[in-house]
Amino acid sequence: MVMKTALVIIDVQKAMFQPQYDLYRGEEVLDTIDGLILKAREAGTPVIYIQHTEQGDPEFSMDKPTWEIHDKIKPLPTDIVIQKSTCDSFYKTGLQEALLERGIEKLVIAGMQTEFCVDTTVRSAFGKGYKVILVENAHSTFDNGILQAEQIIRHHNKVLASSIAALKPAEEIVF
């Protein structure tokens, strides 16, 4: 039996791509996510964008250009856009309802930031009974003063793949 799947893209907003922040492999990850979106659309798989929204925030307030989803992967009218205000894409949002309405059982997850919203959403989805695939080369973050972004990503890939999510490169994702 084939599980009904959705592609969930977390916080790929213009704020993440500002030059002063130096997102690790930013353009490469953006291209990878764009490729995933194209594959999902071709297969008729729902594409769900999660957009961090925080009123009064200098970058994530709705009235700021940096709040917008990156131009390279702009949603189509048929895509779902859900706004969140915490690291958990399910917490006080309509994500769970959108998934239930469509009979979704499996989530393919990509986006920003590895150790915050990606990690929390993967764990939350697992706790809600979804089969989760974390796309190992389609999420990113920034150096944090203690660890390099590459270390953070490798660490989270290993920890999440230990028992919470399947870990696959984008090239192996089939919708």
Results as ranks from 00 to 15, higher is better:
Ala6Arg: 12
His52Ser: 05
Lys72Asn: 02
Val8Gly: 03
Lys14His: 07
Ser162Met: 10
Val12Pro: 04
Gly26Phe: 00
Phe116Pro: 00
Leu76Asn: 02
Lys84Gly: 07
Val132Ile: 02
Asn137Met: 13
Ser61Arg: 01
Phe116Thr: 12
Asp34Pro: 02
Ile73Trp: 03
Leu100Glu: 13
Gly129Phe: 10
Pro77His: 08
Ser140Met: 02
His70Pro: 00
Arg102Asn: 04
Glu68His: 10
Leu23Pro: 02
Gly94Ser: 15
Asn157Pro: 07
Gln51Leu: 02
Ala165Met: 10
Lys4Cys: 11
Ile9Phe: 02
Tyr91Met: 13
Pro46Phe: 01
Thr78Asn: 05
Arg25Cys: 03
Ala166His: 03
Phe60Glu: 04
Gly94Ala: 04
Arg41Met: 07
Lys4Val: 14
His70Gly: 00
Lys106Leu: 09
Val159Asn: 02
Arg41Trp: 10
His52Asn: 11
Glu97Pro: 00
Glu27Trp: 03
Leu107Val: 05
Ile82Asp: 03
Gln55Met: 06
Ala165Asn: 06
Asp119Leu: 14
Thr78Gln: 07
Ser124Pro: 07
Ala43Asn: 12
Ile133His: 12
Leu99Tyr: 13
Ser162Arg: 12
Ser85Phe: 09
Gly111Arg: 10
Glu97Phe: 09
Val159Gly: 01
Val118Asn: 04
Ala6Asp: 07
Ala6Phe: 11
Glu59Lys: 08
Ile10Gly: 13
Ala40Met: 12
Ser85Gln: 10
Thr45Met: 14
Leu76Arg: 14
Glu54Ala: 12
